[in-house]
């Protein structure tokens, strides 16, 4: 059982948390038209990485706040915990973020407002 450091409450047992699965799946905005197949990348496809993985967690039995985690799914090492809306800062976390196939999908591009297609993490 993992020992997780909630960014707000501190170290707690895993049983106080729920895992929200893969992080940084940007939701396409309605204003951007994409095909059903492209939309499926957002809606259905999830990674199941062996190794460094970026995932979302929630301190369900504590402060109920969401946060992001960089975790090695093999060693269970928690490499980094960082707030919602930000990108990982650790070397391994950054690499995992950049290497993710989603970065080049139409679904992710469609998550940016038409006018300002600036880089943004979720």
């Amino acid at each position: 059982m993992l020992n997780i450091s909630c960014p707000f409450c501190g170290e707690r047992e895993e049983l106080e948390f729920t895992c929200g699965g893969e992080a940084h799946i940007a939701r396409p905005l309605a204003e951007n038209q994409i095909t059903d197949a492209e939309f499926a990348d957002y809606l259905f496809l999830r990674d199941n990485t062996k190794g460094v993985f970026l995932e979302r967690w929630r301190h369900a039995a504590g402060c109920r706040r969401w946060f992001n985690m960089v975790r090695d799914t093999v060693s269970h090492e928690i490499i980094e915990i960082y707030p919602m809306g930000e990108l990982p800062k650790s070397k391994q976390g950054k690499a995992a973020y950049e290497a993710c196939w989603r970065r080049n999908t139409a679904a992710e591009a469609a998550a940016m407002p038409k006018k300002s297609r600036a880089k943004k993490g979720k």
């Binding site: 929200g20 939701r27 979302r56 929630r58 109920r64 969401w66 919602m84 809306g85 979720k122």
Partner: peptide, 8 residues
């Protein structure tokens, strides 16, 4: 509701 508010 909290998830959508906090994360999206």
């Amino acid at each position: 509701l909290e998830e959508w508010h906090q994360t999206e």
